[in-house]
């Protein structure tokens, strides 16, 4: 067992982990942040995607000890103090981009990174290609692609977010 310290969703936390403990296991089992899911064991599905130091990573393919000192952001951390949602979360809701909800946290975390990485704009083809690390079995991706396209201008301050 080793004790590691890191920042998760803006709070400094520490946890006792084995060397073999995966980041996703620490988040779910030690920190009870169960919004990050595990959908496969071969790094294909992306249900476990979180941000580490601003980059989207698969938390099932990173050891917890590798996150020592890192800033980790999970789906729970996207929700503002007042309960309001991140624009990507809002657009997923607006465009019915989720059904069973299982792939959703990872999908949202990947989508945010994708949009952030493309300030110049995103075509539908780029969005579809950019989601190659995330699987969804419910939606057929159609509405996920729409939601990400709709979130882009909001996240890049091109249009104000529509009031609910």
């Amino acid at each position: 067992m080793a004790q590691i310290s890191l920042t998760v969703n803006g709070k400094t936390v520490s946890a006792d982990v084995e060397s073999r403990t995966l980041l996703v296991e620490m988040l779910r089992d030690k920190l009870h942040l169960t919004g990050t899911h595990v959908g496969c064991d071969t790094s294909q599905c992306g249900a476990c995607v979180v941000q580490v130091n601003g980059m989207s990573v698969k938390a099932c393919t990173m050891l917890a000890v590798q996150a020592e000192g890192a800033k980790v952001l999970t789906i729970e951390g996207l929700v503002n103090e007042d309960g309001s949602l991140h624009p990507m979360q809002e657009m997923f809701r607006e465009h019915h981009a989720l059904q069973c909800g299982y792939c959703t946290p990872g999908m949202v975390m990947s989508a945010i990174d994708l949009v952030n990485s493309h300030p110049e704009g995103l075509t539908e083809e780029q969005i579809r290609h950019g989601l190659e690390g995330n699987l969804c079995r419910c939606t057929g991706y159609h509405n996920i692609v729409k939601a990400i396209a709709a979130a882009w201008p909001i996240m890049h301050n091109k249009v104000p977010m529509a009031a609910e």
């Binding site: 779910r28 942040l33 919004g35 809701r93």
Partner: peptide, 20 residues
């Protein structure tokens, strides 16, 4: 109608068996 269940799923507060 927008889905009632979405808020919990989108904010990581779903309650799946492995979360229990």
């Amino acid at each position: 109608v927008k889905r009632k269940e979405d808020l919990r799923f989108l904010s990581g507060r779903g309650n799946y068996v492995d979360d229990m």
